[in-house]
């Protein structure tokens, strides 16, 4: 049981701590009782929430207007080195834009390898073993480090379920940022939020995703409308992200987001293994596809063999008239 201290990187989201960070704290709780949350931005003000989710200490990094990756990694690396044997044995990072930036920098600063795309963590004979879903989720590969360096795990959101009730507010400690030199020379000059109403893709109870079967970019409006009517979030297959119909942030799957909504609607999506690995965890799946042989029907709880241009407009009208 010698897992030691675990740190989890918790990024900011909508004025507080991101859910994917709280999920990491839950994962850490299953493994150890000494947990530090490393925060930046608005997440630093969430000591109470973080404590409630299991963090005994909250280590804050003031990144200002810099991109988070370099300063956060530099602060963590300095703190790890200063603490020596009292420092963390493992650091969990979310597989997100910032989480990956921090992981890459940290790996070089600490000369520590990284295990990414982690979908489960367990302790086996005193060492941490990470689970990875490969080949579209049909195979699980477990891997562990063979070095005594700090273990860096980049964990896919939705791997653990966030849960409060673990304790009081964490003790806050500011981590100084050492001089970051040339790599630190990035400044966020403006943030642009796209008009998006409704819940976030990876937190929405309902996700409606569109694929190439929609036929053209304009028809993605049907997906947005359907998502709005179901108080859900619109998502997409990679085919239409690569085609430039919607931004990358909509992508569900191996190289996009993992979603675990109560209901997932796949509209004009074939069900490639790389797509399914990102949505197979949904409680219920509804698929609309004109090809009866489409693999998506193999995992759909309700499959409709039909033309999206016929079924979806009628579905929208029926929902509107309720």
């Amino acid at each position: 049981m010698a897992v030691g201290t675990i740190w989890a990187v918790v990024e900011p989201s909508s004025g507080g701590a991101a859910t994917n960070g709280l999920e990491l704290l839950r994962g850490a709780r299953e493994l150890t009782s000494t947990i530090g949350a490393v925060t930046f931005g608005d997440a630093s003000g969430a000591a109470e929430t973080l404590g409630d989710h299991g963090a005994s200490t909250v280590l804050t990094v003031d990144t200002g207007n810099a991109m988070a990756g370099v300063p956060v990694a530099a602060a963590i690396a300095a703190a790890v080195e200063a603490r020596g044997a009292d420092g963390p044995t493992a650091i969990l990072l979310p597989q997100t834009y910032e989480g990956r930036d921090i992981a890459g920098r940290l790996s070089v600063a600490l000369d520590a390898p990284v295990l990414a795309n982690v979908v489960g963590l367990e302790e086996r004979d005193g060492r941490l073993v990470a689970e990875h879903a490969v080949f579209g989720g049909s195979t699980i590969v477990k891997a562990a480090f063979t070095t005594d360096r700090v273990q860096l795990f980049v964990v896919r959101p939705k791997t653990f379920v966030a849960e409060g009730g673990a304790g009081g507010a964490g003790a806050v400690e500011a981590l100084p940022i050492p001089d970051t030199g040339r790599p630190g020379a990035t400044t966020v000059v403006a943030r642009h939020a796209e008009e998006r109403i409704g819940p976030k893709l990876d937190e929405a109870p309902v996700v409606v995703s569109g694929g190439r079967g929609l036929g053209d970019k304009e028809r993605f409006a049907m997906i947005e409308e359907l998502a709005r009517l179901l108080k859900g979030a619109p998502g997409a297959s990679r085919a239409i992200v690569d085609a430039g119909w919607v931004p990358y942030s909509y992508q569900v799957g191996q190289t996009g987001k993992t979603v675990k909504p109560n209901v997932y609607l796949a509209v004009g999506i074939s069900g490639a293994t790389q797509h399914m690995v990102g949505m197979k965890g949904a409680k219920k799946i509804i698929a609309i596809n004109k090809d009866r042989e489409a693999p998506i029907f193999g995992i759909a709880d309700l499959g409709v063999v039909g033309d999206v241009n016929k079924v979806v407009p009628k579905l929208i009208d029926a929902l509107k008239s309720r």
């Binding site: 390898p113 295990l115 086996r124 073993v129 879903a133 989720g137 049909s138 195979t139 699980i140 590969v141 477990k142 891997a143 562990a144 480090f145 063979t146 070095t147 360096r149 197979k280 009866r292 029907f297 193999g298 995992i299 759909a300 709880d301 309700l302 499959g303 409709v304 063999v305 039909g306 033309d307 016929k310 079924v311």
Partner: peptide, 21 residues
């Protein structure tokens, strides 16, 4: 400096009702 300790088959998810439009 890492090793694969185990490879196993994942649980499969089953399909349900399929209806023709």
């Amino acid at each position: 400096r890492q090793e694969i300790t185990e490879v196993l088959a994942a649980e499969e998810r089953k399909g349900g009702d399929i209806v023709e439009d």
